[in-house]
């Protein structure tokens, strides 16, 4: 490997890769050290180390309520989008439909349309029906944004399934539903879990629909947004650090699960 004449450009390429990875990840992790400061202002380097801003976050009922509301909306959106998206995969990936291409376009179209456009539409729609400022409406709105991603993620792992197992189960006398649940579903499950985690974070991080629709209650992104526009207090650094660690754990676990499933189905 080392004796190729390509060496210098390979070396440059590795250096370039490291620089870009630092550019991508460094700004995120810099938030964590500054959250452990007792200074009232955001300042480098952080002095006066302490957990003041974590205490402020957990001690403020507004922050806690916003977090709980976001968790609630996120969980509902996650369950709804995962179920609806997976069911859509089961129809479009396994059955022959004349309008399959058209339906696939329709299902994935919310991804393509600018987010602000959908947000405004949902807002006008909710106002017209008088269902705005409602956590359930918000959860369904978020689920609509998230389920095309579920459809793509679960659809991708469905395409990796080996149909022979299910056929074998059918030959051995299982009905179509039982054959699916015993032979196909277990290998589909990691993809479904990954999609569920992803759709939870789509909802948990979503700002604009919530900002339009909710007037009485605040979700966590709304609260962060409101604080950021006023002043940059380090409470947000504490909240961000918690969210960064939570995202890494959640998404990392889902990713490992998905990878493992791919390895199992390949072996």
């Amino acid at each position: 490997m080392n004796k190729k004449p390509f060496n210098l450009s390979k070396f440059l390429l590795i250096g370039y890769f490291i620089v870009i990875i630092l550019y991508l990840t460094f700004p995120i992790f810099i938030v964590i050290p500054i959250s452990f400061s007792n200074n009232p202002f955001l300042r480098f380097p952080p002095s006066n180390l302490g957990v003041l801003w974590y205490e402020t976050y957990f001690g403020d009922s507004g922050w806690v309520e916003a977090t709980l509301l976001s968790l609630k909306v996120g969980l509902i959106a996650c369950v709804v989008s995962t179920v609806v998206g997976t069911l859509a995969v089961l129809v479009l990936e396994r059955q022959w439909l004349r309008s399959k291409t058209l339906l696939t376009y329709f299902i994935t179209s919310p991804i393509i349309v600018p987010h602000i456009f959908i947000s405004l539409g949902m807002f006008i729609f909710a106002i017209r029906l008088g269902i705005d400022d409602n956590a359930i409406t918000l959860a369904f709105a978020h689920a609509t944004i998230a389920f095309p991603f579920v459809f793509l993620i679960v659809g991708a792992s469905h395409r990796q399934l080996d149909p022979t197992y299910e056929r074998a189960a059918r030959v051995l006398g299982a009905g179509p539903v039982r054959a699916f649940f015993s032979a196909a579903f277990p290998s589909l499950l990691p993809g479904i879990v990954a999609a569920a985690v992803f759709s939870f974070f789509v909802s948990f991080d979503e700002l604009i629909i919530a900002e339009f629709m909710m007037s009485g209650q605040q979700t966590l992104p709304m609260r962060i947004w409101a604080d950021l526009k006023l002043e940059m207090r380090p409470t947000i650094a504490a909240v961000s650090s918690i969210l960064i660690v939570a995202s890494i754990i959640g998404m990392g676990a889902a990713e490992i699960l998905r990878r493992r499933s791919v390895n199992i189905s390949n072996s």
Partner: peptide, 17 residues
């Protein structure tokens, strides 16, 4: 993928920092 998991709100905040 790491930054892709963080919300845009927090990533923008990180740039403010």
């Amino acid at each position: 993928f790491i930054p892709l998991w963080m919300s845009v709100l927090i990533r923008s905040y990180a740039w403010m920092v």
